[in-house]
């Protein structure tokens, strides 16, 4: 993030960069963690009677 409106002239502050990345990274990390946790079921679940289940949502 630069300080002025057209993005030129000043160097981005390290703190502002950190805040911006955290603002994006924390929710994204939480989402990926939850999805990864859910995907573990593929490797953990043993044989089960097959019955169609509604598919969880996936990125389009």
């Amino acid at each position: 993030m630069a300080a002025n409106t057209n993005g030129e002239g000043t160097k981005s502050s390290g703190v502002a960069l950190l805040v911006a990345w955290l603002f994006v990274g924390i929710p994204l990390g939480w989402g990926v963690y939850n999805t990864a946790l859910s995907s573990m079921k593929l490797f953990q679940a043993g044989p089960a009677p097959a019955m169609p289940a509604p598919a969880p949502s996936s990125p389009r």
Partner: peptide, 28 residues
């Protein structure tokens, strides 16, 4: 078709829980 497909292609091996995990893996 991810969830029903994996269950029907591997009947008796993959159940709904594992299929949900498969869909999660696809998302990643």
């Amino acid at each position: 078709q991810a969830s029903p497909m994996i269950q029907e292609l591997f009947k008796g091996t993959i159940g709904p829980v594992a299929a949900a995990g498969f869909v999660g893996l696809l998302s990643i």
